[in-house]
Amino acid sequence: MLSAAEWAIIGLSLKISLVAILLTLPVAFALAWVLARGRFPGRMLLDALVHLPLVLPPVVIGWLLLIAFGQSGPIGQWLQSWFGVSVIFRWTGAAIAAAVMALPLMVRAIRLSIEAIDRRLEGAARTLGASPWHAFRTISLPLCLPGILAATILGFARSIGEFGATITFVSNIPGETRTLPLAIYSELQVPGSETAVTRLAIIAIILSIGALVASEWLARRHSGAEGTAHVL
């Protein structure tokens, strides 16, 4: 039904998005925790920095990534000298772009769920003999699981749709950085490609709805205690 080229585009998009989410999830959780619970000077600044990808034009984020990860950029130089790798024009770079763009959405979703935890439950756990770490693992973490789940789905959807930062940062290379949105854009440049565009657009819709259905299913499996743990 789908052509080999279309399967390749789907595979690349999924690979990039999954890697981006796995990369971002621990970072987003740590940031969300610090922003929800931490009281330190510079918290507002950190909050603003985390939200930058949400408010800046994606092209600007792509350009900033290019500066940071470029051959003479601070991170780019470091990666080159320590690992001998470059992420420019590579799918890994596309994953980084997707990760950065997904970060604020994920932090927001997780932070809301952390703020919704009744901290007195953690106190109760402590009086029952739990160390802070044990209370975190057995009380706080399970209680914000719906938020983590929502963040994962939101982040995944955002990553699958990432366009501006990706094309600016790692260009539009077939088989390497040409994800689904970039492929749709490329087809649109070719006259008489309506069918190809339609097919790719339908794939995008199916992927997004699939993610949503999967999240609802997961939320339901986890909803025993809460009754209604809707993700979105």
Partner: peptide
Amino acid sequence: LPPEQRHAGYVFQDARLFPHR
């Protein structure tokens, strides 16, 4: 001493049971 070493059995006004267990 941190709470976990005090061996206090604390019963709260609102029971404060863990909702996910």
